[in-house]
Design a protein around this nucleic acid. Structure first.
Lengths: 142, 142
DNA sequence: TATTAAATGAAACAATGTTGCAAATATAGG
DNA sequence: CCTATATTTGCAACATTGTTTCATTTAATA
């Protein structure tokens, strides 16, 4: 889907930096870090605007934030760039390769539901699996 | 268990700042942030030493790190201060209250195992559930 | 096209995490 | 107990990440 249509459908103002940010994410089928997005945005990248826009786009449901650890955050378009019309499930599982850094949205795998203590309520469940991808798992030879 | 015994059993050198760090965590039955630990360490707290020691103690299996999000990390003793002798399970579930900030180790709940794509391998599974604790859930009146 | 509210980008700040290095300290051996 | 040695500590300086204020620019509406 066109970046401008995504913004329009989510009732978010169309600006050059937002279009460039969405297009950067669309140029990859994997979630990207700020640095990876910056490299794809070229001149359009401004750090302060970036922080504000990822907040705005996350709030409006266009993208989601994946916290790999306290020093690494990745961003991904909801619906992962596919043309699916149905709303992206917020609570799916993410995989991070500790060797190559590749991050994968396992959209097909919903986060398991865990029993909470009496009186507690849940709004989000974030699951990050760390390990090695098919290319980096010892013993696999690509 | 005494802090010095914990260090000895894990073959980590006994120093004042490590003892104070462990004792700070022992003084709470909930995981603590750096600031919460700092307040409990008083004069013994030094920021650089703190970062190095949490790394050392995590590597040796004495504590574990809970990344709530990119701007908030909590630390907890393995075995959660209880006198259990068995090794703490690395992959349990954590709960974070979005209202009061309280973080809870749900030690009894092992992280669910998720199917990975062919050729992938897992080393860690981090599950953070966010929501509201019993005191902060709307509708509950303490 | 003019109006208005929102978005941008610069500067300055705040918080978090890291590295190099000299001084201090913990353990092991005598 | 004392000395030797390797580790730990704490300072200074730096790097990265994220935020706030405010004047200017831009997008959407009438």
């Amino acid at each position: 889907m066109k970046a401008s249509d995504i913004l329009y459908q989510h009732d978010v103002k169309k600006t050059l930096s937002r279009l460039a940010l969405i297009q950067a994410l669309q140029s990859s089928n994997l979630p990207l870090s700020e640095n990876e997005i910056r490299d794809r945005m070229h001149e359009q990248y401004d750090r302060i605007t970036f922080y504000r826009n990822v907040q705005t786009l996350a709030d409006s449901g266009i993208i989601h934030r994946i916290v790999i650890d306290n020093t690494l955050v990745k961003y991904a378009l909801n619906c992962c760039g596919k043309e699916k019309e149905h709303q992206h499930s917020e609570n799916h599982v993410h995989f991070y390769c500790k060797n190559c850094g590749q991050t994968i949205c396992l959209d097909a795998i919903p986060a398991h539901s865990y029993p909470l203590p009496e009186g507690f309520s849940m709004t989000d469940c974030e699951v990050v699996i760390k390990g090695y991808c098919n290319l980096c798992t010892p013993g696999n030879h690509a």
